[in-house]
Simulated assay, not measured.
Amino acid sequence: MQITRFGHATVLVETADARILIDPGAFSPDTPFELEGLDAIVVTHQHLDHIDQNRAPALVERNPGAVLLCDPETAGVLEFGDWRENGEGVETAVKGVTLRGVGVQHAVITPELPRVGNVGVTVSADGEPTLFHPGDTYAYAPEGVDVLAVPLSAPWAKVSETVDFVQRVSPTTVFPIHDLTIAELAYGIYWGHVANFGGVEDARKLGQSDSTTA
């Protein structure tokens, strides 16, 4: 399994015969929006840092054979592409890879704001590790996760919850996503707590790379 981070929540997973792009959002550079040969594009929820509705239509056009998968609420607001609804426990097969929906709702930002839908995804294939991208929540901790994409900072998160999430999922390896809300000077503080207290031995090494093989 080859994993490439493109900034913030956008992750490319290459495993078996499939290439799967998750959360092509507005905080990410142009590079992921220029990809071709994708077999699936997965969106965990409708917030702009997870789906850039200005650049994503061209990405979808560039990949006409890709399965488009998102939570039901997002499917209702996207005005481009033929999106399939993902949901808790829903499994979608893509070229020998199983994409499984995890969760229902986005984390609480503040009680005054309505919560949108959020369906994370596990990516698994025979003989390959299982990756979990949760979108924007720490509420769900599926079993059997080998590689965790952990949201490192958000208006809805605090460090103790991040560490608890990593401990509950208990992956073999972990790498950071949702991290463009952290100033470069302070980044080591956040990742240091995950590395020191998350219980994942090689967390710091993976956190320093934009591409890793799992």
Rank of each mutant, 00 (worst) to 15 (best):
R5S: 15
F6W: 14
F6N: 04
H8K: 04
H8V: 07
T10C: 15
V13R: 04
V13N: 04
E14K: 07
T15K: 03
A18H: 10
R19N: 03
R19P: 02
I22W: 02
D23P: 14
D23Y: 00
P24C: 00
G25N: 03
G25V: 08
A26Y: 12
A26R: 15
F27M: 08
D30P: 02
D30L: 10
P32M: 08
P32F: 04
F33N: 12
E34A: 08
E34G: 07
E36V: 14
D39L: 06
A40E: 00
A40Q: 00
A40S: 00
A40M: 00
V42M: 04
T44W: 01
H47L: 05
H47R: 04
L48I: 06
L48E: 12
H50L: 00
H50W: 01
N54V: 14
R55W: 07
P57Q: 08
P57V: 03
A58I: 04
N63I: 08
A66M: 11
L68Y: 08
L69A: 02
C70A: 15
P72F: 05
A75I: 01
L78K: 04
E79W: 03
E79M: 07
F80S: 01
W83F: 05
R84I: 02
V90Y: 10
E91R: 14
E91L: 05
T92A: 03
A93E: 15
K95E: 15
K95N: 15
G96H: 10
V97G: 09
R100E: 04
R100A: 00
G101M: 04
G101Q: 05
V104S: 03
I109Q: 09
E112C: 12
E112I: 09
V116M: 13
V116R: 11
G117L: 00
N118S: 11
V123D: 02
D126I: 03
E128K: 06
P129F: 01
P134D: 06
G135R: 07
G135T: 05
D136E: 10
T137Q: 09
A139E: 15
Y140D: 14
A141V: 06
P142E: 08
E143H: 14
G144C: 07
D146G: 10
L148R: 15
A149Y: 03
A149N: 01
V150M: 11
L152F: 07
A154Q: 12
W156H: 05
A157S: 15
A157G: 13
K158N: 12
K158C: 05
V159H: 06
S160A: 07
S160N: 03
E161Y: 02
E161N: 11
D164Q: 06
D164V: 01
Q167T: 04
V169N: 09
S170D: 14
T173I: 13
T173Y: 13
V174M: 08
V174D: 13
F175M: 13
P176E: 01
P176V: 04
I177F: 09
D179F: 09
D179C: 05
L180I: 06
T181M: 12
I182Q: 09
I182M: 09
A183G: 12
L185K: 13
A186S: 11
G188Y: 01
I189F: 09
V194T: 02
A195N: 01
A195S: 07
N196A: 11
G198L: 02
V200I: 02
D202R: 12
R204D: 11
K205I: 05
G207M: 09
G207D: 12
S209H: 12
S211V: 08
T212G: 14
A214M: 09
A214C: 10
